[in-house]
Design a protein around this nucleic acid. Structure first.
Lengths: 334, 334
DNA sequence: AAAAATTATGTATACGTATACATTTGGATA
DNA sequence: TATCCAAATGTATACGTATACATAATTTTT
């Protein structure tokens, strides 16, 4: 059952049937109803593959994540999908697990499926080349959760440097001078690098020397945070505060501190970043920095929709505010 | 640039080019290399839409989630994608937000995109009809995280009744007789209903009367768990233990208990279900029941691949074991 | 009421691939 | 060397839609 058969039954041409589905305003109401009725009676299913082929682009957007869809990205992703669903656009998703070959394979899939656009969480040197490949094919892309000042990419995210800077200055403002850092894989992820820099710049601005012995980089995760914190606790001249540049690391650190028989914030202050869903519910509730996760997804999706309607516009770049969320995990230090 | 043009340059027929890509073993090695070389030089991109149209099925699987991709589903989803990636199958994803109209729209998308199969997390009366629509079109479906004994659906999940039963009996075994229940929206989700039943059957088997006043149903979430627990704490004849049939509810409950100035497990025992990622890291670490989240995703994907190769097999049904995870949130009661 | 402008519908074809069927090639067998 | 068989390649077409262009029907304008 296809449009031709419906056309035959309805006594109209296939063009009219096609119009009834894609541009209903161009078909006389009664005729349209008749066509829909026949379609329904015959269990007709619109064939998107055929339409995609003919139109040379699919009603589909590819979303690429580097890591697991965790507490934060989940919200962004939901917003992306909800926004695109309004235009009946499907979402193809892929996570790269940080593996360049997986990343290539997924982007190749997107290309072959004629996606109308791509959304990339995170920016890597590898995918820079790949993104160019998309734009050379006229496929718009948006990078999320990352700010790429001075580039001509579309992006929407928070200023990670500033978020980490704010968090660090908050601790300094509480009187802390010796502040440890738990940081993710900054070599692999631009935004983690930015957070690292934000921490360093905050210390420098306040004339505090950076001590690499209380900076620990690890993968993102509870376990990694716990292990890193245990190492920090063993350090000579233990820090009075720790900034974990991801709530996952912070939650793991929290556990390590408790295991060592100490209390947060009495014995040590702990600051997170991301405002993961569990941050408000751990004990003590974690002070952190929150980015507008849903907003980011929504804007990213809208950017794609706008470019679709009007290609060739200058790059759209959004740097959204992040908010310091003060809870109970940091105390003054004298 | 398409296969015809490549064929022209290579001096072969388009059929040979097509074979070089889809069934490379049918093309002489040197010729194949030549074709690939020309394709690469001309930045050729395989057009999946055209192939989908011709083959009348796409290299795509649709995955439908009811709720946010949280701590547990995330793992399942990752496993699905990894498994399908091996066969270069793309994943279209959608979450229904429990809205029947969204569910219909997404499934309609899947249908129109000629998906090779669908994976559904959760089973509802609404989607039962829709699933039938898929099978009538010859599209296989797998339901995950749900056991549908006696049906002819493909499914892979844990026995939710048994998981809740185990958890409840564990508390009873510790001497608790008055056990509160925090339960999700059991009217909407079959597996939550099963958990509810598991709780009730465990009590009944142990000759404990069910007291509706200490059973609270709410949406799934930290906040909802906290609020429900606060209500439970105000109850006359407060329970000595609470079974939260989702770790999200349990984590919220934990907070409520602390806010009330009580300690877990000294003053009240708390049992979760799901083994969400944060369960091991909250304070105290939460005793819970763990289902094989990755395994479920992996098997679901494999079922689809098997059916693809050999349609018409009897339904594949997997009921996987769940494990009681004893941590520190439950204490004996005398 | 005729002409013009607008709207609705029809005709015909292309999108790029997969594959049934036909043909050729190359090597093995007798 | 003639015959046969398998492997490699070619020919031709269909998959179902969208749309440019042509035409017919309807409304608006004069």
């Amino acid at each position: 059952m296809n449009m031709n058969e419906i056309a035959k039954i309805a006594g109209v041409s296939n063009a009219t049937v096609s119009r009834a589905f894609r541009t209903p305003e161009k078909v006389r109401p009664e005729l349209k109803e008749k066509i829909f009725k026949i379609a329904a009676e015959n269990h007709y299913v619109y064939n998107a593959s055929a339409a995609d082929l003919k139109r040379r682009v699919s009603n589909t957007v590819g979303v690429l994540f580097q890591q697991r869809i965790g507490a934060v990205f989940s919200k962004t992703f939901m917003a992306i999908q909800e926004t695109l669903l309004e235009k009946n656009i499907s979402v193809i998703i892929g996570h790269t697990q940080f593996k360049p070959e997986v990343e290539s394979q997924l982007l190749q899939q997107f290309l072959e499926r004629q996606v109308a656009g791509i959304i990339l969480s995170g920016f890597t040197k590898e995918n820079k080349t790949l993104i160019k490949k998309f734009s050379s094919q006229g496929i718009p892309s948006v990078i999320i959760w990352e700010i790429l000042k001075g580039s001509d990419f579309n992006y929407v995210g928070i200023d990670n440097h500033n978020a980490a800077f704010k968090a660090t200055e908050y601790l300094i403002g509480l009187g802390h001078r010796r502040i440890g850092l738990l940081i993710g894989p900054y070599q692999k992820m631009e935004r983690i690098q930015n957070r690292y820099d934000g921490y360093k710049d905050a210390l420098t601005k306040n004339k505090i020397e950076i001590d690499q012995s209380i900076v620990i980089s690890s993968e993102l995760g509870f376990l990694q945070g716990k292990e890193a914190m245990h190492r920090l606790l063993k350090a000579a001249d233990r820090p009075s505060a720790v900034f974990a540049a991801s709530d996952y690391l912070a939650m793991g650190a929290l556990k390590a501190i408790k295991e060592a028989g100490m209390k947060v914030p009495k014995d040590i202050s702990l600051m997170g970043l991301d405002d993961a869903e569990f941050a408000a519910y751990c004990d003590p509730p974690l002070s952190t920095v929150r980015g507008p996760a849903r907003e980011i997804g929504k804007i990213a999706a809208k950017i794609l929709l706008e470019i679709k309607d009007e290609p060739g516009l200058p790059p759209k770049q959004y740097c959204l505010d992040s908010d310091l969320i003060i809870r109970d995990s940091c105390a003054p230090h004298f």
